[in-house]
Simulated assay, not measured.
Amino acid sequence: MAPESLLVAGVGDIHGRFHRVEAWLDALEAARGRPVDMVLAVGDVEAFRHADDHRRKAAKRAMPAEFAEYADGVRAMRRPLYFIGGNNEDFEALHDAPDGFQLAPNVHYLGRAGLKELHGLRVGYLSGIHAPRFYEQPLKRPRSLDTAKQAGYFRVSEVEKVSALRDVDLMLLHEWPRGLPQRAQERDVPPPGRPLPSSWIGNPITRDLVERVHPKWVLCGHSHRAFAVTLGWQGGRTVTRVACLDQAARPEESVFWMEFQGREVVSAGWGLSGQVSWRAGSPWGLGSLPSLPEPEPLGTGI
């Protein structure tokens, strides 16, 4: 008997837009005709527990302080959400739980670095971005805006912890691995209207991490654009498929779903339509990205 399938939704940088993301997931469930079993967010979630903290510290302070409703029990997340830290978070609330904790019902911080088994999947993760000046410095308690900013940078001990992992089904990173555009250009022709990002995007530390661990899939965010590329290892005998997600401004490129049979992805797609853009055995690359929306017609000027 085939194993029961699992529907996992990856979400790009939420930046506090929890109501919007929940509505998107409702639409995805309707399109796929089944529930989303879990949601994985790639950082910059901005789960500020208090409205005043959101208004003072969030990257998008003009937005309503939506997470406070979940922390206060006014609303409840309808499906389990697991997130890593980006470089914009409520670091004061996260600092004392480097191995993760539950912030509210169905809302889980995975931690700064490590491995969790979620619904039978081995999920490795590294929170934060690379800042060379702080890479080997100890992590300070975020008591000020400056030390809170430093909390958004990963440290060498955290990278070493993740680099020792093996047999990883999914790896969650906030910042892209360096070199993805070059690798994509070696294999694919960019679709019309989709220029390649700068060759300097991402950082070499997460690239080295992926090269050591060889996860089956990587999800990342931070740079607010969708991207897809395959990295090959051991002469192509094993591969890592990378999906970079846009911020949660519109769903077409910020929601990426995967259907698993056991621990293997059998199909995947972008956005809320439920349409499959990749199946097991097919190539994964720039051609797997969603179609860009048609430009709006120009007004007549009358």
Rank of each mutant, 00 (worst) to 15 (best):
H222N: 13
E22K: 07
A68N: 03
L110R: 00
P204E: 12
V218I: 04
G124K: 04
S288E: 05
I201P: 01
L245K: 00
S277Q: 12
S144R: 06
G193W: 13
Y109A: 05
Y153C: 14
A76L: 13
A226V: 05
G221F: 06
F101H: 11
S127A: 08
N106M: 11
V168F: 07
E252V: 13
R155W: 05
T206L: 02
S199E: 14
E296F: 15
Y82E: 04
Q182H: 08
G299W: 04
W278C: 07
P293M: 14
E22D: 14
G301A: 03
P105S: 08
A23L: 15
G269K: 05
D72H: 09
Q102G: 01
D44K: 04
P215K: 13
V239D: 11
Q182F: 13
E294G: 13
S277C: 07
T230M: 01
F256E: 05
D167T: 00
A2I: 09
E259M: 06
E136W: 07
L173C: 02
R61Q: 12
E136I: 03
D72N: 13
A249R: 09
G281H: 06
D37L: 07
A65R: 00
L25D: 05
R133G: 14
S267W: 14
E211C: 09
V266Q: 12
V189Y: 00
G33F: 06
Q137F: 04
H222E: 14
Y82D: 02
G285D: 13
Q102F: 00
Q247M: 12
P132N: 00
V107G: 02
V276H: 09
E253Q: 12
V74L: 14
A93V: 00
V213K: 03
G10N: 13
R263M: 05
R263H: 13
L292I: 08
W24A: 11
D52A: 14
A226N: 05
Q182L: 15
D188K: 00
P191M: 08
V8M: 07
V74I: 15
G274A: 07
I129N: 01
E22L: 10
S277H: 10
E253H: 01
L7Y: 09
D72G: 10
R34C: 10
A151W: 10
V162T: 09
E89G: 03
L6S: 06
G287V: 01
R279S: 14
R55I: 08
L292D: 08
G281D: 10
G120V: 08
A59I: 00
A68V: 04
V210I: 09
Y153M: 12
G269I: 12
P177Q: 04
W233M: 07
R155T: 09
L170W: 11
N106E: 14
E296Q: 15
L115N: 06
D53S: 11
L139A: 12
D72Y: 02
D13Q: 02
R225E: 13
G124L: 03
D246S: 12
G193N: 10
L298S: 12
G269E: 06
